[in-house]
Simulated scan of single mutants.
Amino acid sequence: MRIVVDRDKCEGLGMCESMAHEFFEVDDDDIMHILDENPGEEHRKELTAAVNSCPVLALTLEG
C-alpha cells in the first residue's frame, strides 16, 4: 500500500496527523509530510480513517 498526497489540494489542516500521527506530520509552515509512504497492510484501517478525514480530499491509498 502507498500513501499519496495531492499537493495542489493539501492545505496542511492536520486531520490526517491527528488520526495517524506516526504516518503524517504537519510542520510549522502548515506543510504536511508523509513519514512512511509505504506502510504495512496492518495499518490499512487506521490509514483509511485518516485519508477519509481529509476535508479537502488530498489523500489517497494505492494498493
Rank of each mutant, 00 (worst) to 15 (best):
R2Q: 04
R2T: 01
R2L: 00
I3W: 00
I3S: 02
I3L: 10
V4K: 11
D6V: 04
D6M: 08
R7L: 15
D8E: 14
D8Q: 09
K9Q: 14
K9A: 15
C10Q: 10
E11V: 03
E11A: 11
E11P: 01
E11M: 07
G12V: 02
G12D: 06
L13G: 08
G14F: 06
E17A: 15
E17N: 14
E17M: 13
E17I: 03
S18T: 05
S18N: 11
S18G: 05
M19T: 03
M19N: 08
A20F: 03
A20W: 02
E22H: 05
E22R: 11
F23W: 09
F23V: 01
F23M: 10
F24A: 05
E25H: 09
E25L: 10
E25A: 08
V26F: 12
V26P: 00
D27W: 06
D28M: 06
D29L: 11
D29I: 02
D29N: 06
D30C: 07
I31N: 08
I31M: 11
I31D: 09
M32C: 11
H33C: 03
I34E: 01
E37T: 08
N38K: 08
N38L: 11
P39W: 02
G40A: 15
G40H: 13
G40W: 03
E41S: 12
E41M: 13
E41V: 05
E42C: 06
K45W: 01
K45M: 07
E46Y: 09
T48S: 10
A49K: 07
A49W: 09
N52D: 12
S53Q: 05
S53L: 06
S53A: 15
C54R: 04
P55Q: 14
L57P: 03
L57C: 09
L57T: 02
A58R: 09
L59D: 13
L59R: 04
L59H: 08
L61A: 12
E62K: 07
E62L: 12
G63K: 06
G63E: 15
